[in-house]
Design a protein around this nucleic acid. Sequence first.
DNA 1: TATTGTTATACTCTATAACTATA
DNA 2: TATAGTTATAGAGTATAACAATA
Lengths: 164, 164
Amino acid sequence: MAERTQFEELARQLSAVGAVKRDMGRILPPDCPAGSAAVLTLLGRHGDMRMSKLAELLAVDMSVTSRHVAHVAARGWIERHPDPADKRSRILRLTPAGLDRLDELSRRTTHLLAERLADWTDEDVGELIRLMTRLRASFGDCRSAPLRLPAPVSEETTRTPAST
Amino acid sequence: MAERTQFEELARQLSAVGAVKRDMGRILPPDCPAGSAAVLTLLGRHGDMRMSKLAELLAVDMSVTSRHVAHVAARGWIERHPDPADKRSRILRLTPAGLDRLDELSRRTTHLLAERLADWTDEDVGELIRLMTRLRASFGDCRSAPLRLPAPVSEETTRTPAST
DNA sequence: TATTGTTATACTCTATAACTATA
DNA sequence: TATAGTTATAGAGTATAACAATA
C-alpha cells in the first residue's frame, strides 16, 4: 500500500495528463474528433461488435457511444447491421473507407509520439503502457462500487484544528 | 526508439485513461468541479502565484484559467491581490476556507485511490508517477512546435492498395 | 417486466477572438 | 506596441432521463 503523499501526486498527474491528450487531439482531422477516433480504433482492434460492447470498451455511457457511432456512420466509416440473433441490437463494422481513415489516424498519432518520445526507450514506453493498463483495470474492475467516503467531518463548515 | 505498435497502444491508453479521470471526478463536491480542484491543488503545492503562472501549470489557456479562478474566488477559497510590481497582474492566494476545501479534496481522492489501488506496491505507484511526469515533460517541453505531418498521402480520397 | 439503443437536455472543459488596463 | 487578464462565443465530451422497439 502506497502512502498518502503518493496518492496525491498520482491524482495530480492524472489531472495533468489531459494536456497530453489535448495535444494528441490537435493532430486529428477536423471531421474526426477524439470520440470518433476511439470508435474506429476499437473496432479495428477488436473487430465487429454491438453497441453495448463498444460502450463498455469506451467506458462511457451508451448514450455517448450512440452519438459517436452516429457521427462515424454518417461519414461512411462504419456500417450498422441488424443483429439476426436480437433485433434490438446493431452490429458495428468498419467499412473500407473506415479502414483507410483508421490507417491515417494511426499514421498521425504514431508520428507525433515518435517525435515527442524520441528519447524514450522501448522498455520505458512498454512500462508506461503496462502501468496505465493496470491502472484502468484497478478502476474498471470495481465499477459501480458506490464508494464510501471517510466520514466527511462536516462537509460544509469544516474547521480542521491543525494538521491532524 | 519504440515501435509503431507500441505507440498505437500508448495512444489507446491515453485515450482510455479518461475513464479513470471521470471516476475521480465523481467523488468531488458538487460545487467544486475538477477545474476548481486543480486550481486549489496547484496553489496549495506551489504557493501564491500570478494568473499566467497558474495557466502554465494547468497547461490550459489563460482564458480557461480565468474562469476556474473566478469560480473558486466567488466561493471564497482564494483571494486575488493586486501585484505591487505590475498593476496588470493579480496574485492568487489560498484562504483558510480554501485550505479546508483542499484538505477535504485530498482526503477524498486519497481514500478513493487507496481503495482502488489497494494491491499496488509503493514502487508500482512511484513508477507510474515517474513515467507520467516524464510523459508530460516530453510533450510540454516542445509546446508550440507546429508538428509536421508525414506526407498525408491524400487526406481525403486515400485508397491504400493493401497493407503497405 | 427487462434490455438495447436513440434522442433531448444540461453541464464541464477548452480554445479563439475581442476587449480593457497597464507596461 | 506588447502584455496580463477578462468576457463572449462556440465546439467537444459526458451523464441523466425519457422514449421506442424488442426480448
